[in-house]
Write a protein that binds this DNA or RNA. Structure first.
Lengths: 149, 149
DNA sequence: TCTGAACTGTTCCAAATGGAACTATCTACT
DNA sequence: AGTAGATAGTTCCATTTGGAACAGTTCAGA
């Protein structure tokens, strides 16, 4: 039973990744690059460190992916004034446009997932979110315990 | 809201993958190899084709991962008699032992996820499963429609 | 029985990935 | 001020990944 549940997470995720892969490939991006753009789009700007915490990408992958995005002109990157170790990242106009495209793309992840979610009531979605949160929290906690043992 | 839901799937999955990665690495396996062993363990034996359908691994990845597992002695591989294109895969004794270890490992995915699931009632788990199923089905359907357009 | 299309798996190789070592910067303490 | 330790990112490179071409097998229809 719980095993089926485990698999169902993997299945949903795999389906989502296929949509991401498709959209990303059409624009010549890798999956990490797609994730980075979408993550930054939630705020106006974000340090590379923060992006790393949100996406869980290994920092070498992150660094190289960001580098590509800057070279392609999707991202602006500049040192943070008060802490020159950190890099502040923000979407360029071109980047913003790309992100908007991703959000609006008829057969892209966002629209399709939105439609899929509309099978449920707001109440049900809240319950799902809550349940997922509980599981994530539990897994993270155990992982920490194991690491520090 | 539905965006948060989307992210929550990704988060749970990422947490799960970290457990898998840890277990797999300890035994010198890649993540696809871990998935393959666990998938085959549900039945006694399975064709490579079926494993591919269940894991969604690209066939080149699958082929190479299986090859490694056979060479390490975890899997038996032989042509299907009535259809020599297909390969029948089954766990060797060593493979079965490894899989049992994975299932029983205190700080492995299975035990931890089981514990995490015990925060919920059987009723709640059924609802989760049902919701996940609905989402997967929806995503798969749209993907098919897009592909055949 | 031939022939061509479909299917299963393998091989090849270019690209992506991620751990580890490194550089630069900052912080806390003496 | 000087130093050790922590922190943010980059670079390096061995490994993994997966698309595409390929080889062998099966099957359907002429």
């Amino acid at each position: 039973m719980y095993m089926q549940l485990m698999m169902s997470f993997a299945n949903v995720q795999k389906n989502m990744v296929r949509f991401i892969q498709k959209s990303a490939m059409e624009k010549g991006l890798s999956i990490p690059q797609y994730s980075i753009l979408m993550t930054i789009s939630h705020c106006n700007e974000m340090t590379q460190k923060t992006v790393g915490e949100k996406t869980f990408l290994p920092k070498s992958t992150l660094s190289q992916a960001v580098d590509g995005l800057v070279k392609e002109g999707y991202l602006n990157r500049q040192q943070v004034v008060c802490n020159r170790r950190e890099m502040m990242l923000s979407l360029s106009e071109k980047g913003q446009q790309l992100v908007d495209d991703f959000y609006l793309q008829e057969d892209g992840l966002y629209q399709v997932f939105k439609a899929a979610s509309e099978q449920f009531t707001a109440e049900q979605i809240k319950e799902l979110l809550d349940a997922h949160q509980k599981i994530s929290t539990y897994l993270t906690r155990v992982e920490l315990e194991v690491t520090n043992k």
